[in-house]
Design a protein around this nucleic acid. Sequence first.
DNA 1: GCGTAACCGAGACGGTACGTCGGGTCTTCCG
DNA 2: CGGAAGACCCGACGTACCGTCTCGGTTACGC
Lengths: 205, 205, 205, 205
Amino acid sequence: MTIDETDSAEARRSIGARRNPASQEAILDAAAELLAEVGIAGFSIEAVARRARAGKPTIYRWWPNRTALTLDVYKRFKTARAFPDTGNLRDDLIGFLDRQLIGFWRGSLCGLVYRAVIAEAQTDDGAAAALLAYQAERKSVAVTLIERAKARGEVPAETDSVLIIDLVVSYAWHRLLLGQLDAASQEIETVVDTILRGIKGYRPL
Amino acid sequence: MTIDETDSAEARRSIGARRNPASQEAILDAAAELLAEVGIAGFSIEAVARRARAGKPTIYRWWPNRTALTLDVYKRFKTARAFPDTGNLRDDLIGFLDRQLIGFWRGSLCGLVYRAVIAEAQTDDGAAAALLAYQAERKSVAVTLIERAKARGEVPAETDSVLIIDLVVSYAWHRLLLGQLDAASQEIETVVDTILRGIKGYRPL
Amino acid sequence: MTIDETDSAEARRSIGARRNPASQEAILDAAAELLAEVGIAGFSIEAVARRARAGKPTIYRWWPNRTALTLDVYKRFKTARAFPDTGNLRDDLIGFLDRQLIGFWRGSLCGLVYRAVIAEAQTDDGAAAALLAYQAERKSVAVTLIERAKARGEVPAETDSVLIIDLVVSYAWHRLLLGQLDAASQEIETVVDTILRGIKGYRPL
Amino acid sequence: MTIDETDSAEARRSIGARRNPASQEAILDAAAELLAEVGIAGFSIEAVARRARAGKPTIYRWWPNRTALTLDVYKRFKTARAFPDTGNLRDDLIGFLDRQLIGFWRGSLCGLVYRAVIAEAQTDDGAAAALLAYQAERKSVAVTLIERAKARGEVPAETDSVLIIDLVVSYAWHRLLLGQLDAASQEIETVVDTILRGIKGYRPL
DNA sequence: GCGTAACCGAGACGGTACGTCGGGTCTTCCG
DNA sequence: CGGAAGACCCGACGTACCGTCTCGGTTACGC
């Protein structure tokens, strides 16, 4: 973890009439540490301020509510991860599920953080909006996978790209929210195959 | 709604050294009403007690925490809903999505309540366990849809019934949690078709 | 202490349509024990009922409120103590202060209990009334000391007996309520002498 | 009463990172009013907070418990009252009893408040210590009455000044705690005379 | 000799208050 | 103007007792 301890540090002072990056760092660090240590419950603005040696108003100045902060912690961890073009849709989607969703959540705090964000979005309208916006942006990126396949002639042009991505993401969310990421990582290929080709041998009556 | 007003009722008394069903009813009623009126936020034990004209200790006596109460409210609404056999899997699944999940959540408080339960399950371990158990039970019922199709020869015997149901349920959860049930109800058929047959015209390279 | 343990005893049953002395004993025992163990604070009807293995209504049936119970505990300890006639008022009053008030309170739980009663009388009207009645009764007995002295010709017939007793009792209360019984027992004789003869050598201008 | 109504006032805001005197005033005012209106019972932190439009935490921030608050209310009322020198001990003591104790308690809330303080001192150790300290300070002032008389040659130098004051104060407490201040104010002179000269016509055997 | 009345234990009930925690706002002071 | 600090009001948390009530069972007394 790239978190440097700030507990015993000298209190940061203002650096004049502009945002102090050190404070923002300290706050995000503290938030991440808290999430790691005490989990979603017990993650409060108050606790973050205490640990970061920051004033609550400093937090509220830059993040309108707890959700925004949580989401920022999430984004911070979400290093830019490209969507490498494997040349075929199946492997693209497998990689998407594995490295951007399930595997990514499993391997870091991010699963925890994202669960927190989703939970808050059920309570808080602002959080819901923020999450929706974030979702839309992420999906629009993921949709390029499908568009690439269309360009290759792998799937027809009239394919509903968004729906396909929705199905993939929905599956990942479901597993995340039920704490079943481990099981999920076992069946990624099956899931992708099902979404691409449907039920093998399906014979409608 | 099957809720009869209890606000102006005479205060309930103890009926001796055992649980007073009227109180429990009033508490669950009040909880449901509150969820309907103010949503998940603002749904507090304190508010429930006020509206139900019940003492807080009476609530805590029977429900260890807010999650338990919320789950009880959900179960209360979840009337037994059958899975009518339409004779083909496609219509079965459409009916499942429409009447048991998306449409059901849209048409009542249940969507709201379920969102609350899922949110709390991210914070509270007990809630998570309760939700998992409930999920497992519901899914095991839904799986019979697939099994019926297997018996009809509609799908091969080796089809992973649970995965199919998981995909369907995942999609519904995703829409629920993002507050997109209305949009979801428009594309139920497309979703089912995709899950059954995959991407139409998919031509793997 | 004459308290026999009742915790592990078989629960007492009703003995028919009359007061069960065993229950009353157990309740008073439990109350006394609690006062001895946890002091005035933490002495609650609930705790008494638990320890005595009695139902709360059984307590409320026989004692209208906590104060009445406390007062009964006090009376229970207050074994009949006569006012032996020493033949002169000074020794009578010294004995009264020493054996009925200060020394008596010092040597047992009674000081504690009486402090509790007085404290409750400040809050509870019923308690105030009960205490007043008890006071009146006790004082009327003590007044006989003065009447005996009148009969002996030791003090004039027009002496205000009640006032003299009031002064003696007031002094004892004051010391009790400030937790200064130990110091008080040292100056009993001086107090009595002052009350009987006033300030020695007082020469009004 | 010097209490200005704050019920309908605009809610006080924070005045920055330091104690808001307006809040403290409002809280003490509310406490005094409550004591005046509903007496010692029903005087709760909760009720004070409600009436003062203050948060409970604000009260607990500055007063560790109810006793501390009650004592502050008492001190607030205890305006500096001098001990005018009448030139003779009898009138000095009568004035002391009448204006500093019995009459003072009768004429204001102070009797009520002081009863509350004494009651709480029986339960709470901190309150007991505070009361003792207050008592000691008050008595040390009152003792000057006797010292003045000594200087005048009215009483011998070896007179136990503290004991005389104790007797006077004890009598006042006793009447206060039994709610007999009205009766007490009738017999102030008799009490003082008895303390000064003893039982008139006392003839020890 | 049998109903009935009062007692007993138990414990749930609606309440009130407790003392604590956190949310989000505000203001002061310093840089 | 930014940032630390911390007080402010508010409201919810979960707990402890209060005094009342009803229950099922038991026993003694009176008809």
